[in-house]
Amino acid sequence: MTTLRLGTRGSQLAVTQSSHIADRLRAETGADVELVTISTLGDRSSAPLSTFGGQGVFVAAVRDALASGEVDLAVHSLKDLPTYADPRLTLAAIPQREDPRDALVARDGLTLAELPAGSLVGTGSPRRVSQLNALGLGLRITGLRGNVDTRIGKMTSGELDGVVLARAGLARLGRTDEITEAIDPIQMLPAPGQGALACECRADDADTHRLLSVLDDPDTRAAVSAERSLLATLEAGCSAPVGALAEIVNEGEELWLRAVVGDISGSPSIRLSASGPPSEAVAIGERLAAEMLAEGADRLVQASTPAP
């Protein structure tokens, strides 16, 4: 039996996510899968992500290894994947999404509303900074990088009063008991694609594509396609405060997409929604983005993008 080499970042979360996909492939297709860890620019640098000036800092090296034949498939956090297509590769499967919400891990079991004004909260995401400031809770926000242990450790050591992370990552690591609040999307919309995994293979590798396709979840694919088409139409990257969440409702008959584009200060912001059939997911994202651009979203995106 041929062994499939699965390329992954080396972080604990990335390896855990990739191991989950490897286990599913073994169980559902009988394939033999081994993990190959690859170092990425995002892993090697401690600089704020917004200073990199582009998308793909956590996936470029893994995708290059896949395209060159060093590995046969790759697993990424979908929110890290650039919205523009790579003709060398194909997105063969998007498995069922984990809870896409952001999560607060705070001292003394506190929620956002319970943290006293002036509390210091850590996050490396401009999107989260913008929406936290828009809540008007008087929190102080500071930059934060590192793995889950590093981030939560800054709270447990007393350096921070709380940190905001993706709930999905904590769930995959078995650490949901540390969450003090799963933040309602009404307060904070997640990053486009948050909570979903992307399984890629080479565009000309029909055999691996066929194996991966059994993991694909149509509802998740439709939802994240709407979110990512919105992000692409806005021409916004990782440095832009853009949140989006699509959900399949009405017994699978309708896709509802909510999005926000904001300023780091929390004001102004543009928050709109759109809906339509899941089969038109990409068009729904494009239409909503066009409405947001008409309201001035391009100016907010440009204002948040660092000068080259």
Score class of each variant (00 low, 15 high):
residue 114 E to Q: 12
residue 113 A to T: 08
residue 114 E to W: 01
residue 147 N to E: 15
residue 254 E to L: 09
residue 194 Q to S: 13
residue 180 T to Q: 08
residue 30 G to S: 07
residue 270 I to N: 00
residue 240 A to T: 04
residue 195 G to W: 02
residue 236 A to Y: 05
residue 293 L to H: 07
residue 101 R to I: 02
residue 46 S to I: 02
residue 108 D to K: 15
residue 234 L to A: 11
residue 303 A to Q: 08
residue 55 Q to T: 08
residue 183 I to F: 08
residue 73 L to W: 11
residue 221 R to C: 00
residue 268 P to K: 04
residue 124 G to H: 01
residue 15 V to T: 11
residue 2 T to P: 10
residue 291 E to W: 05
residue 180 T to P: 08
residue 1 M to C: 03
residue 112 L to K: 06
residue 175 R to I: 02
residue 12 Q to C: 03
residue 293 L to S: 12
residue 268 P to G: 13
residue 197 L to I: 07
residue 81 L to V: 12
residue 238 C to W: 04
residue 248 I to Q: 13
residue 191 A to C: 03
residue 59 V to N: 13
residue 150 T to C: 05
residue 32 D to Y: 00
residue 283 A to D: 15
residue 304 S to H: 04
residue 44 R to W: 13
residue 239 S to D: 15
residue 75 V to N: 13
residue 25 L to H: 09
residue 147 N to K: 11
residue 304 S to R: 01
residue 50 S to K: 12
residue 52 F to N: 01
residue 101 R to D: 06
residue 210 R to F: 11
residue 64 D to P: 04
residue 46 S to N: 08
residue 39 S to D: 07
residue 295 E to P: 00
residue 128 R to W: 02
residue 101 R to P: 09
residue 273 S to F: 04
residue 218 P to A: 00
residue 124 G to D: 11
residue 210 R to Y: 09
residue 281 A to L: 02
residue 98 E to D: 13
residue 5 R to I: 14
residue 60 A to G: 02
residue 277 P to R: 06
residue 66 L to I: 01
residue 264 I to R: 14
residue 249 V to Y: 03
